[in-house]
Design a protein around this nucleic acid. Structure first.
Ligand SMILES: [Mn+2]
Ligand SMILES: [Mn+2]
Ligand SMILES: [Zn+2]
Ligand SMILES: [Zn+2]
Lengths: 153, 153
DNA sequence: TCTCTATCTAGGAATGATTCCTACATAGCA
DNA sequence: TGCTATGTAGGAATCATTCCTAGATAGAGA
């Protein structure tokens, strides 16, 4: 979602976050994509408008925005951290082939609970569901692969 | 679950995994705990019986066992990798206070699916559910904390 | 509008989990 | 039992993330 700088300013101030050009650009970049970028990808994107920005600022800002609840961290397996500007409750579909992450909004998934017998006295505040599989593109690539290797001989 | 070395030998060979003392010890350590240890914790444990073992062997072995399907990797947020000797389908409860991971076996959770509308052409092979909250101990610690800070004044 | 200070930023160094490299050892097939 | 593909130890390398610090600046208050 495209946000103008006034929107961002209001949203930041509502969460007591100081507004700087760098922060606005980082948040902007995250808000207008659904691709769950890494800190480094955000750095590369923001660097086009702010050539002097440092990686440290990107990490620090993501930490600030996360604590303010404006951003969330998403983790695929044990790969590098990925970030999500969508802080509504939702879940993810992860491609084992190309690592892409796709949002899943499904009210039923938001209602999951653990039976008391299994809860072991935990007070549960939330949960996260990850579906693992292959995207349409990667399924096609797999079908094509044997044909290609035949041609290689 | 305590396994004798014959059990381990049989299990390894069934999966075409070569048997070495180091591997058996690593697998043993993992099989007899429910605590989802890190590679380094396994290294420390196994080192008691095998003082010369290297961390590299632990990592390499965990990779081999994982590919053989004898072990799985569990990831809590973005912390260090944790390993699980329980390869049956199950899910986890994670304490935000002390990071402990507790198994949840719940048939209903194993049946989750994504609606076709949301699946975006993915072929889904599996899923993982993480519940986040505070364990009984950490809930108590939180209640005690304000009292302690009152005393501190 | 101006001032003051807590907080930010840039840049570079440090950290630490994991992977890479390599020479020697060994599991297990035949 | 011998042979060879594979495993092991140990050290170096990698690289995402965090730490440190000196100069900049947002924004609260006057
Ligand atoms: Mn998302
Ligand atoms: Mn488990
Ligand atoms: Zn894919
Ligand atoms: Zn706890």
């Amino acid at each position: 979602m495209r946000l103008n700088s006034q929107d961002i300013h209001t949203r930041f101030r509502r969460h007591a976050v100081r507004v700087t050009r760098q922060r606005a650009a980082i948040y902007q970049a995250l808000a207008e994509t659904t691709s769950h970028p890494t800190a480094n990808e955000l750095y590369q994107t923001v660097k086009r408008q702010h050539p002097m920005i440092s990686r440290n600022t990107v990490y620090y800002t993501l930490g600030v925005l996360r604590q303010a609840g404006l951003v969330q961290e998403v983790n695929v397996g044990h790969e590098v951290a990925r970030f999500d500007g969508n802080v509504t409750v939702h879940h993810h579909l992860i491609c084992l082939g190309c690592s892409q992450i796709v949002d899943v909004m499904d009210e039923a998934l938001n209602q999951l609970a653990v039976s008391d017998g299994q809860a072991r006295g935990f007070r549960i505040l939330g949960h996260r569901v990850e579906f693992h599989g292959y995207c349409a593109g990667c399924q096609r690539a797999k079908l094509d692969a044997p044909q290609r290797s035949r041609q290689e001989h």
